[in-house]
Design a protein around this nucleic acid. Structure first.
Length: 599
RNA sequence: GGAGCAUUGGUCUAGUUGGUCUAGGAUGGGUGACUGUCGAUCACCAGGUCAGGGGUUCAAAUCCCCUAUGCUCCGCCA
């Protein structure tokens, strides 16, 4: 074990003869004088030697050292000569003069320029992840992550929670994401599924009487990836019995306050602001609003007179008309505006209109269609002033929210409106229970099928599923959904009615969730919980743009692990034991790849 | 599943409308010089089937098509 670390040496260590070891960060050869910056995970120390003062053999060995080699130096800590201290380094007052040197591992020339790691391409960084992880920033991220999980355990333990593990080899269920499957050798033809979340098991633990459970749980989803999405990710998963939504909110706010205090020494305002789902959508066009900046959506549906042909879609879909005032952008060029137009079209907002306020006058293609007083009241509601630009869109509410919501985010980042170092938490509550799936032509659960609805809908939720509000809540930080949960159903009858609404036939429900429904028949407490996406939380806390930067060994977009070269082929024998054979076309494809890996 | 962008020495990149590219620079590597630097500096040297395949052309890093890989976005992610 090391007695001293490179990064910890200070002026007060002057005169000590000691041994330090680490990686050769940089080498500066001045002929007679030779410097090495030696790095370990606490920082850098300058090592110095003078050719005249040491024997030729040591000299040769020092000069043969490569960057990133691991060496051990024994020597005297000395104050640097006056005028040569480096104030930028915490260890800059001192240096170690070499007496002995051991090369513990000599490094080859590096595959990429790792002091500028962010310039290297992601594939190369992932291939040499162990080098990448040597960077102080990445080391800091991973260490912060460890401190966050540690503090999470400390806090939840102190609140009377117990950490309980649940199985990784479980059963595939039809709802939700695609499962990762694991073939069973003992039961040929059968498969385990890796858990998408410990949902069912934690509910079972509630039935078992563990009234406060948590777990830092790995979850798996076989879906296409995004910068903030990995095929395996980690949740801080918790569940409690005999509680209300308020109890969960209190615990989670307490946890997040604790984490920000311990990790970042920040006092978060509490209680967090709350917003209903509807308000979030209407004001921010998102169920995870970023409230660090304005550019809010303003509903102007009621101002639009009926029967105007260009707003046909608003009436037909019982939709909305919404607008954003973009201050001071009245001089936007048609070309720039068209870019916005095509941007919102990606999100099914078909048309984007504008009103420019120039010299107190509204200039807009809409003047042809809208009476003057309507135009005036729109401007008034949006507080339009000289030089402003108001953008408007109308149509099916979900499309308009999405389009304007995404435009809002794009504008904020383009216009640099997002303040740094600010952490805006909020709760989004009163989510709808169900949403209609055009694709499947059926109702689907917005949160998950075990979510209870607000009691005023309990008797009638089967009749108007679209209007039912759930006991579901999300905690949002700076526009990221960092956690979500709900109060669960604990009545088997209600659960069966929900399955019915979701169009899950009794026999399928029986087949997939029978153990849960059965469990509910033997004394199930009211319960609920929440899961925090650990990767995203850490990402926001260390201010990184993607969760790759907070995971030691992340996968690429194609779910490939470049370092471990996974996934990979297995032998025919391995497959045989499992009773599995590849399809002929798959075999053919693999053969072709083998012959020509570039094709 | 769909769309867009990208792929040039180890790495990061320049490369206009096809010819002046025998592909430029930086960094990394090697050799040498230098008494204090701190991403040291200076000089010299080596290093490239321009992702793979096909096509257009007198002529392709450059234009077209296919494939692979990567990234971004849509779909998907209860």
């Amino acid at each position: 074990m090391k007695e001293y670390s490179c990064g910890s040496l200070r002026g007060s260590d002057e005169g000590k003869r000691l041994t330090v070891s680490g990686w050769v960060h940089a080498i500066r050869d001045h002929g007679n004088t030779y410097f090495i910056d030696l790095r370990d995970w606490e920082g850098l120390i300058q090592i110095v030697t003078k050719r005249d003062e040491i024997n030729e053999d040591l000299n040769e060995r020092i000069r043969a050292i490569n960057r990133e080699s691991v060496i051990e130096i024994t020597g005297m800590v000395k104050k640097r000569p006056e005028g040569t201290e480096n104030k930028k380094m915490p260890t800059g007052e001192v240096e170690v003069e070499i007496e002995e040197l051991k090369i513990l591992n000599s490094a080859q020339p590096l595959p990429y320029h790792f002091k500028d790691m962010h310039k290297a391409s992601i594939p190369i960084r992932l291939k040499y992840r162990y080098l990448d992880l040597r960077h102080p920033k990445l080391q800091e991220n991973i260490k912060t992550r460890a401190r966050i999980t540690s503090e999470t355990r400390k806090f939840l333990d102190s609140q009377g929670f117990f950490e309980i593990e649940t199985p990784m080899l479980t059963k595939s269920t039809p709802e939700g994401a695609r499962d990762y499957l694991v073939p069973s050798r003992v039961h040929k033809g059968k498969f385990y599924a890796l858990p998408q979340s410990p949902q069912l098991f934690k509910q079972m633990l509630m039935v078992s009487g563990f009234e406060k459970y948590y777990q830092i749980a790995r979850c798996f989803r076989d879906e296409d990836l995004r910068p903030e999405r990995q095929p395996e990710f980690t949740q801080i998963d918790l569940e409690m019995s005999f509680i209300t939504q308020e109890d969960i909110i209190n615990v989670v706010e307490g946890l997040l306050r604790h984490l920000f205090k311990e990790i970042k020494d920040l006092d978060i305002m509490s209680p967090f602001p709350r917003m209903t789902f509807y308000e979030a959508m209407n004001r921010y066009g998102s169920d995870k609003p970023d409230t660090r900046f304005g550019l809010e959506l303003v509903d102007i549906t009621d101002l639009i007179p009926e029967g105007i042909s260009i707003f046909k879609e608003v009436y037909e879909t019982n939709g909305i008309m919404s607008a954003i005032n973009i201050k001071g952008k009245g001089d936007i060029s048609p070309k720039a505006f068209n870019k916005w137009k095509s941007y919102v079209q990606k999100f099914k907002t078909k048309e984007l209109a504008n009103i420019k306020i120039i010299d107190g006058e509204a200039k807009s293609p809409l003047t042809k269609y809208l009476p003057d007083d309507v135009m005036k009241s729109i401007i008034e509601r949006l507080d339009g002033k000289d030089g402003d630009l108001i953008v408007l869109a109308g149509g099916k509410n979900t499309n308009i929210w999405r389009g304007l919501g995404e435009l809002r985010l794009k504008l904020a980042s383009d216009m640099n409106l997002i303040p740094e170092g600010q952490f805006n938490f909020l709760w989004v509550v009163d989510f709808p229970s169900f949403e209609w799936s055009e694709e499947d032509k059926r109702w689907t659960a917005m949160h998950h099928p075990f979510t209870s609805c607000k009691k005023e809908f309990l008797d009638t939720f089967d009749k108007n599923p679209g209007e039912v509000l759930a006991n579901a809540y999300d905690v949002v930080l700076n526009g990221y959904e960092i956690g979500g949960g709900s109060i669960r159903i604990h009545d088997p009858e209600v659960q069966e009615r929900v399955f019915k609404v979701l169009g899950i036939p009794p026999e399928i429900a029986e087949q997939n969730f029978s153990f849960l429904i059965e469990a509910f028949k033997y004394g199930a407490p009211p319960h609920g919980g929440l899961a925090i996406g650990l990767d995203r939380l850490v990402m926001v806390m260390v201010d990184e743009p993607g969760i790759r930067e907070v995971i030691a060994f992340p996968k690429t977009k194609m779910a490939v692990l470049p370092l471990g070269d996974a996934p990979n082929l297995v032998t025919d024998e391995q497959l045989d034991v499992l009773g599995i054979e590849l399809k002929p076309e798959v075999k053919l494809m693999l053969e072709k790849k083998k012959e020509n890996p570039n094709n």
